[in-house]
Write a protein that binds this DNA or RNA. Sequence first.
RNA 1: GGGCCUGUAGCUCAGUUGGUCAGAGCGCCACGUUUACACCGUGGAUGUCGGGGGUUCGAGUCCCUCCGGGCCCA
Length: 895
Amino acid sequence: MVREVPDKVSTDGLEQKFDERWSAEGTFTFDRTATREQVYSIDTPPPTVSGSLHVGHVFSYTHTDVVARFQRMRGKEVFYPMGWDDNGLPTERRVQNYFGVRCDPSLPYVEGFEPPHAGTEGKAVKPADQVPISRRNFIELCERLTADDERQFEELWRRLGLSVDWSQTYQTIDATSRAASQRAFLRNLERGEAYQAEAPGLWDVTFQTAVAQAELEAREYPGHYHRVAFHRPDGTPVHIETTRPELLPAVVALIAHPDDERYQDLFGTTVTSPLFGVEIPVLAHPAASVDKGAGIAMCCTFGDLTDVQWWRELQLPTRSVIGRDGRLHRETPEWIAAGPGAGLYAEGLAGRTTFSARKAVVEALVESGDLDGDPKPTQRMTNFYEKGDKPLEIVTSRQWYIRNGGREWSTDGTTRDLKSELLARGKELDFHPDFMRVRYENWVGGLNGDWLVSRQRFFGVAVPVWYPVLASGEIDHDHPITPTAAELPVDPTSQAPAGYDESQRGEPGGFVGDADVMDTWATSSLTPLIVAGWERDADLFERVYPMDLRPQGQDIIRTWLFSTVVRSHLECGVLPWKNAAISGWILDPDRKKMSKSKGNVVTPMDLLVEHGSDAVRYWAAAARLGTDAAFEVGQMKIGRRLAIKVLNASKFALTFGVDPESGTGEITLDPAAVTVELDRAMLAGLADVVDQATAALEAYDHTRALEITESYFWAFCDDYLELVKDRAYGAGASASDLTAETVSARTALAIALDVMLRLLAPFIPFATEEVWSWWRTGSVHRAPWPTAQPLRSAAADADPLALAAAGNALAALRKVKSAAKVSMRTPILSGTVAVPAALLPGVESAIGDIRGAGRVEGTLELVEATEGQGNPDVQGGIVVTASELGEPPAKKPRG
RNA sequence: GGGCCUGUAGCUCAGUUGGUCAGAGCGCCACGUUUACACCGUGGAUGUCGGGGGUUCGAGUCCCUCCGGGCCCA
């Protein structure tokens, strides 16, 4: 075995060197001839390409890569593609800001359009200054920008050392993804799992789109309780409290809890609303809370989700007043037009924002005397779109839904309990850590509606349907026209359905395309199907699906993980993957979540350049799954030190016996050559490490594997290497005249190094690969994962304790010198060492090496430690009871 | 209001089914330039294991309760 060990080692430049080599040699290229049993497939989260990656990404993606590299070395053919989630609102927003444009679908396409800006350096262009452009122009800009981002992302991942197969990348907006997404939707539609409904739903007035339950975020929002009087037929007031008096024109009932004593006589009667004089019933419903406000609430269509529940369950009429733009309808509603409030509505409310309408209603209430007391300020939890900053409204609109167990599902009299089916899938999935399962269960259990998938946006996968336009000019939503699978992907807004031509768009007897796109998650939920070649590459699909691992963050269990389970369950009747590995958050040193707004975000690339990728990976790998971790530079420095130590220790271990002339030499890995007890003890200990590290990685506990391996490696450097140094040098013996003891040490060093490099390879892939390249062929990342058995047989019946004992004895000798404040090279002329009985055999067996490493020149007497002698926590209880130090060696000038 | 996670040395964290479990690394202090490594080595000090109860022969470990941090759902 030829060695070429450099004189000077360094971690610098390894990232680029090996990224290039791995690419050139196809080290991580997936071999698609492997069978399902031989494959380990990973469904990695496609990062959103709308901003920048942050340290949290580096953190969690490293966890995945550790698994990938481990499985690959275990002999699995790892299927590890990478996608980019470019689809959706984040990209739209970024394009608006970056290019200073805004999408207006009514505008025509402009050939060769050049945007007013190309990068505004983070400064958002005011909406008024944004240039309106056609949808097609807008999408072109989306694609231009994401292509740029994707290059940067890939560069970062390569530098971090993700062992992704870079020939397997995809975008959630590319043609394959669009086709898959549309195909899945059409399948859902065919089976009755997708449907459209005209229903009240959450609506973001800023982004002008419907929003799904999974995208909600409840936030504290300030408001005022207004105590407002309704009136019984005899004029007696009934007071309710509301934070949204502007919805008074939309009131459809007053509702109190059925057990509420105060309102028993009111149930079943009617009252009239103030200002508008609309007669409404007083009803009982258990969702009314007795101790909130007056205990009786006004139900409007629609102020919040409870209103929707009441409206549905009590079958109340719809009197909606708020439009998609968040303003009150411009036309006076019919139930008000004939009443006393018609004038108020027309003059004070029509076309107003909720804010100014509220002011107008409150003023009118004051005037009419129906406002009791002053409004009381309050903070209440209000629903927001997670990306928005105005409270959501509830607007009735026609939208597409996919069933997800959130609502009863019955067709032709038979009901299907999808919620229970999905809960059962959750139990089937192996979560790491296991407690993350409850997040899934809580979410599924708490769903209160099906999944709203249509979005009134632009940069997304189109809802693949058209609708006939009847002779009357009305659109027939009940009979959507669908494309065939072969036509996918389609854009119904620019393509005509089969049997029609473009001239018939919008014409009576013709068609219209559905203008909506699908929710980003409607596509993201298909990533395992997309990458596995579903309905596109049956051969591949069979080899990789269902997949083995879904790694992701805990924040998207309710969205990405859940929706993916839904789609796979509906489509294939299986879980999409066997395991879900959930990474924690990165917290800043104040234990706050790192976020851009706090300005505490570190650019990942800078981090990798400054500390080195192995170092950053070490920090990430040292944090357990599911546990939040501190952003700690100190931890990276430790990782860097480990990487450098690996280089240096390896260089040292491999240099013994090297011919100084040629710089090369022979090295053997033959276990039979390991004959010395201490060497065997070291291998015996290593065998245990291999077992433990392997078991830990199999259980998705990479932290434990790293810890066990790392600490053994340090002990190997500090004790074993020191102990065998002299023996391994072979004290002047020529290459042909080596003693068995010297060969034993050299061989044991080589075997241990070979094993430890492989154990560390998933964690610090660059340093280990560098060392591997000095003396082995191929990549360490394709080398087989070590097993304990060969080490055990090489170790024969040696006790791992012997190495610990010898190490402790050496430390005891060093302590004498340290206490005497002399150099470690100072000879010990004679000494007596007290050793606990249990360690005595180990110390005795290595006494020659101990003497050498401790520079003991005269007699070294070993005695059994007596009761109370020595502290077991210090050097295992081994103490030097008497010693005589020689002259410290002359100091040599450093150089 | 319900649920989950978390609180161990100045810092970051291990402590598997209750019995050497008071640990590691960093930092700190002292010393040392040893033919791998100063991006180093050697040695040392450091804790009422959040508080209080309880179960037990025995409790960071199990139970109850309170307090502090984080998150999710109402």
